[in-house]
Design a protein around this nucleic acid. Structure first.
Length: 295
DNA sequence: TTCCAGGAAATGG
DNA sequence: CCATTTCATGGA
């Protein structure tokens, strides 16, 4: 086992690990004590994830991050947790709106992540009409049933399954895991990835709205799920996924941005959330989902 | 029991 | 093109 430290001085604005990892952006991390939720602080708490067959664990320490891993995860952590982003600058560019100010005051170290795209794609296909804790449970179940095992400190950690393995699962097996009507979506999208039916590699260089349309070629991916994949798995900062929480936030706080279609409402709300609409959205979503308001 | 969850696909106009 | 209906599952 290797271990090391990412100093606070190299993380402009620092990071709140628990809020960032438990805010519904990613479902690939496990808190060491097994308790999900944003109530507890995360200082000293270990969070575990997987990356390319390696295990990574991180913990907040004096504003920086302690890590232990099967490899040196520094570059991976910087990319996935967005550690190079200048958080104070980003937050200062947020729009002057009461609900945004309230969210900013509550979540000082919340960062936008960029997680591996294939697990993010499947995670958000599963997310349709599901609560966040249950999405996390299903992603973990998929890993434990179909993911390659990795030995780590007297335990076995499972990677996220490959598209090849998910394509080989039967719809019945996936339904028995609790996926419901999303089971055929997962299988069909896995087959598209396995057979190269959709060129995922070309998407990151596309203009945002073209990229959003491109991902809807996968089965179970509409505009909202596509926005989540672009925002949390590909580094786009324009997307504002219009889920139930954000739609109600628009109705309450930005009623003049409501339009007749997803695409038009998306444009209207993006124009109201500052230079990085997706970053602003993550703050507002986390705030509202955990009982916040504009007060 | 009833309602709802980070929606998408199928159907009907 | 837009509006309505259907689709599983589990927790409150």
């Amino acid at each position: 086992m290797k271990s090391g430290h990412v100093p606070a001085s190299s993380i402009p604005g620092e990071i709140d690990l628990r809020t960032t990892l438990e805010s519904g952006q990613t479902f690939l991390w496990q808190p060491e004590d097994g308790s999900h939720g944003l109530d507890a602080g995360s200082e000293g708490e270990w969070f575990q994830t997987i990356a390319d067959g390696e295990v990574i664990e991180v913990s907040e320490r004096r504003g920086g991050l302690d890590w232990r891993s099967t490899t040196d995860p520094t570059a991976t952590l910087r990319a996935r947790l967005g550690l190079d982003a200048n958080l104070p600058d980003i937050r200062n560019a947020f729009p002057d709106e009461p609900v945004v100010e309230a969210a900013k005051d509550r979540f000082t170290g919340l960062r936008l992540v960029t997680e591996p795209v294939v697990p993010t794609l499947f995670s958000f296909i599963l997310s349709a009409q599901m609560r966040i804790d249950r999405i996390h449970r299903l992603v973990t179940d998929l890993r434990e049933h179909y993911g390659d095992p990795i030995e780590w400190r007297d335990t076995t950690v499972h990677a996220f399954p490959t598209p090849e393995r998910l394509a080989r699962a039967t719809e019945r097996e996936l339904r028995d895991l609790g996926l419901g009507y999303r089971a055929p979506y997962v299988k069909a999208t896995a087959e598209l990835l396995r057979d190269g039916g959709v060129a995922l590699d070309s998407v990151p260089s596309m203009p945002y709205e073209d990229a959003r349309d491109a991902l809807t070629e996968f089965v179970g991916v509409g505009p909202k799920v596509s926005d989540c994949v672009l925002l949390f798995g590909m580094g786009f900062e324009e997307p504002v996924p219009l889920d139930t929480w954000i739609q109600s936030a628009i109705a309450e706080y930005f009623p003049d941005a409501q339009r007749g279609s997803y695409g038009e409402t998306s444009r209207a709300i993006r124009s109201r959330l500052g230079p990085r609409p997706g970053y602003t959205q993550t703050y507002v979503f986390t705030h509202l989902r955990t009982g916040g308001s504009a007060e």
